[in-house]
Computed example of a mutant assay.
Amino acid sequence: MLTGKADSENAKLTWHQTDRMMFQLIEQAWDLFCVFDIYGNLIYATQSFDRIVGFIPDSFEQVVEFIDSEYRMDVHKLFIKTLQTEDSIKLEFRAKRACENTIWLECTTLPIKDENGELVQISFALNDITLRKNQENRLISMAFHDPLTGLPNRRLFKEQMNQMLMQTKRTGRSLALLYLDIDDFKIINDTMGHDVGDAFLQEFAVRIQSCLRDIDIFARMGGDEFTILLPAVDYKEHVESIARRIICCMEQPWEVKGHTFRATVSMGITMYYPDSDGSTMMKQVDIALYDVKGKGRNNYQFFRFKEENGQE
């Protein structure tokens, strides 16, 4: 920011001569409000800064300090753009409250001109929009995640798969797709009740997740069907070790809502090959899964390419 001490002092005098009713209006209209001269020197900040942020700033840099580092450059640009265009501009960003938790703020810049039409001050009018942002995030989460298990749903999975396929084509590293189906899940639902079935699915998601890496994608496609994407797996043996780990974790007895029982899972697996696409790979794992089901379940099967083109 530029500095202009004399101009800053004159601006402060002008501001503090403003009618007290204007101060009261400002305090009630916005959660936070501050005014800078065109050099970035702070002229005025409402007392609410102390309550919300934990201190009353005395400079532009102190205002920026409580803003999440991801958005600090955006706030600098906001000031400069308002200075250049002399237009009111809005920006949403995260910041830290006095109690260290996160707050979302909507900032509106208000350019202030003197009687000659010259820009002399820039105001930051800020409102707490944390509740709205949390509601938006919940709606987004509901649209892309399974409400029972919290896993990505079919819609999000398709997007993630397409992104991963593009990444795989760029890097040349292989990718594996697994399609999981819980054996005889309908019997669990019918004999023990849907509340037990739901609790079982939640525990199932936790168990399977413990077998995977942080970079792997695990999604619920609906009912008792799940998918797993394994990026950066260069050897079939790596995929087999994860498949065996999943089979092994399923062997442990299940204790759900007072019921003890055993459950197994069948898996169809396919590997990425040049020119593979999402729909083709989904078709391949479906065929492989059908093959497992026909051979007694509780196992995994890689897609055999001879089923499509007559060769292994």
Results as ranks from 00 to 15, higher is better:
residue 190 D to G: 10
residue 79 F to N: 03
residue 292 V to F: 12
residue 250 M to V: 01
residue 126 L to S: 07
residue 230 L to C: 09
residue 211 C to H: 02
residue 124 F to V: 13
residue 118 E to K: 14
residue 121 Q to Y: 06
residue 231 P to H: 04
residue 109 T to N: 01
residue 278 G to R: 12
residue 151 L to K: 13
residue 274 P to M: 12
residue 264 T to M: 06
residue 220 R to I: 01
residue 269 I to R: 04
residue 32 L to K: 05
residue 127 N to P: 00
residue 152 P to N: 06
residue 154 R to W: 01
residue 189 N to Q: 09
residue 228 I to Y: 07
residue 274 P to C: 08
residue 221 M to W: 00
residue 237 E to N: 08
residue 119 L to F: 12
residue 163 Q to N: 09
residue 145 H to L: 02
residue 302 F to D: 08
residue 245 R to C: 11
residue 271 M to T: 02
residue 306 K to S: 15
residue 191 T to N: 13
residue 309 N to P: 01
residue 144 F to A: 09
residue 199 A to Y: 07
residue 186 K to V: 07
residue 255 E to Q: 12
residue 279 S to C: 03
residue 146 D to L: 05
residue 26 I to S: 09
residue 38 I to K: 09
residue 117 G to Q: 03
residue 274 P to N: 07
residue 172 G to D: 08
residue 134 N to F: 03
residue 248 C to I: 02
residue 14 T to C: 06
residue 246 I to Y: 03
residue 111 P to W: 00
residue 70 E to I: 04
residue 276 S to F: 00
residue 29 A to C: 04
residue 173 R to T: 14
residue 55 F to A: 14
residue 90 K to P: 13
residue 113 K to S: 07
residue 232 A to K: 05
residue 50 D to W: 08
residue 299 N to A: 14
residue 215 I to A: 13
residue 157 F to D: 03
residue 156 L to P: 13
residue 197 G to S: 12
residue 80 I to L: 07
residue 67 I to M: 05
residue 310 G to S: 10
residue 62 Q to G: 12
residue 122 I to H: 03
residue 241 S to N: 14
residue 66 F to Q: 10
residue 204 F to R: 01
residue 272 Y to T: 15
residue 299 N to I: 00
residue 85 T to A: 14
residue 254 W to E: 07
residue 311 Q to G: 08
residue 59 S to F: 02
residue 280 T to Y: 13
residue 58 D to N: 15
residue 10 N to M: 10
residue 123 S to R: 02
residue 74 D to H: 09
residue 76 H to E: 04
residue 173 R to F: 12
residue 126 L to A: 12
residue 6 A to S: 12
residue 241 S to A: 11
residue 138 R to W: 00
residue 296 G to L: 08
residue 203 E to W: 10
residue 184 D to V: 00
residue 130 T to V: 12
residue 2 L to M: 05
residue 182 I to L: 02
residue 220 R to K: 09
residue 247 I to M: 15
residue 70 E to N: 11
residue 256 V to R: 15
residue 209 Q to M: 09
residue 229 L to P: 09
residue 253 P to V: 06
residue 129 I to Y: 01
residue 88 S to N: 04
residue 174 S to Y: 00
residue 159 E to A: 15
residue 135 Q to G: 06
residue 89 I to C: 03
residue 178 L to G: 06
residue 208 I to Y: 02
residue 79 F to R: 00
residue 44 Y to A: 13
residue 265 V to M: 06
residue 56 I to T: 15
residue 135 Q to P: 02
residue 106 E to I: 14
residue 87 D to F: 15
residue 75 V to S: 02
residue 311 Q to L: 13
residue 33 F to S: 10
residue 17 Q to D: 11
residue 62 Q to P: 15
residue 270 T to C: 13
residue 53 V to W: 01
residue 23 F to W: 15
residue 276 S to Q: 11
residue 194 H to N: 11
residue 210 S to W: 03
residue 93 F to G: 04
residue 201 L to Q: 02
residue 241 S to K: 03
residue 135 Q to H: 06
residue 246 I to W: 05
residue 143 A to K: 11
residue 204 F to D: 01
residue 17 Q to N: 14
